[in-house]
Design a binder for these strands. Structure first.
Lengths: 216, 216
DNA sequence: TAGATTGTTAATCGATTAACAATC
DNA sequence: TAGATTGTTAATCGATTAACAATC
């Protein structure tokens, strides 16, 4: 049963919700009607109390002794994360990384609908990758503002990242998923979410170093 | 001046250190001999006290009124993150994403040296991408164990991620940089660092939702 | 009923931020 | 010296975890 009491969730909670969704979709495939918080927790190597806390921020109420209804929980997480009406997005930079993201069909089930791409390479302009047409970067401002696309996926070379960003902001983009290693300058009301590979690599190296130190 | 008192740093600290390094390398190019914590903080939109705390966990001592020596700080962060002797790594899965990472020359300056790649596509086997030779996946166990490569970059399709992981573990891999959306099962002593795009996307969507709600 | 699992309230933990004496 | 910036110690903040009454 849904409930109006949705809280503004913390970032860590928001990051975990998609993984719950994936467990729930599996459970549904197996014909399970309900799941307990400890079931989800076990699958993801988390604590059940954490799962319960996270779910509570979506406003869904479970049933003591039973757990949570699988379809209801799927539904509430999907709408909570905005997966119900996938938002249009475009890719700036159709290199290897951009192409990888275009091919990542998984995004459609996760609220993102990539509708077009831009690149400066005249070899690529006019072609399609996984059904997504590539336009020349010169067309970005006009096309994006006319189509009113809010979300940009930035996969251009670092050297041009800021310039391209400036154009995207002019075109009315409201959120940028930044795969470059540039710290972008944008107006305060523009959301930038960076996928920071170097930070991720640093934690891997650091953990490996600790593990080697403690084992030898 | 370095100091023996290196603490085990927190994950958030480790994630920020590479960004300090990037600011410092820029500063060095501009000929700056010292920087203050507030200089770094300003560049990265952080608080100076946080920068100072993070630096203190590397053991480097600054000078009141002066700040930190740029070359010393670069040096200490590089060795702290293990960038001094770059570690060998291989890529499992030479698709778009794998190729993008092979081309990402930036990693060499960040402690990672990608030495070979594996794929099942016979069209790709034997070719090179950015100087990195692609071998058939069948050769993985033998080659990786003989060359004693500790770090794997996993960019195979989700469906085979666990199988390939099992082989890599058998081959003696100690750390896996996981770009798939699979929650891998590995022995306790194997480090897995996952780049969770769906979690990152969820925070972007959530922030965008908040921003739209508060503006309208 | 008995017992499994929930939601809530409180305790703990760890990271960030503030305050400030030390220092060159 | 005066003042900018450090390192340390304490306070705050927020997330996680624990405890437990409520409930079907």
């Amino acid at each position: 049963m849904t409930n109006e009491s949705q809280k503004t969730p913390s970032i860590p909670t928001v990051r975990r919700l998609p993984s719950y969704l994936s467990v729930l979709r599996d459970a549904q495939k197996q014909g399970m009607a309900t799941v307990s918080s400890s079931y989800i927790a076990k699958k993801l190597k988390l604590e059940s109390i954490q799962v319960r806390k996270d779910i509570s921020s979506t406003g869904l109420i479970g049933q003591p002794r039973i757990g949570f209804s699988v379809p209801e929980l799927i539904d509430v997480i999907e709408s909570f994360l905005g997966y119900k009406n996938a938002k249009d997005a475009f890719i700036a930079g159709a290199g290897h990384l951009g192409s990888a993201l275009m091919g990542y069909s998984g995004f459609k089930g996760y609220g993102l609908n990539i509708v077009l791409a831009f690149d400066v390479d005249s070899q690529k302009v006019g072609t399609k990758v996984d059904g997504i047409e590539i336009f020349h970067l010169d067309k970005l401002e006009d096309l994006v503002s006319r189509l009113r696309i809010n979300i940009a996926i930035l996969t251009v070379p670092d050297a041009v990242a800021q310039n391209v960003t400036d154009v995207m902001v002019k075109a009315g983009v409201r959120a940028i998923w930044n795969f470059t290693s540039v710290k972008l300058s944008v107006p305060d009301d523009i959301i930038v979410e960076r996928v920071d590979l170097v930070a991720s690599l640093a934690t891997l190296s650091s953990k490996l170093k600790q593990s080697i130190l403690s084992n030898e």
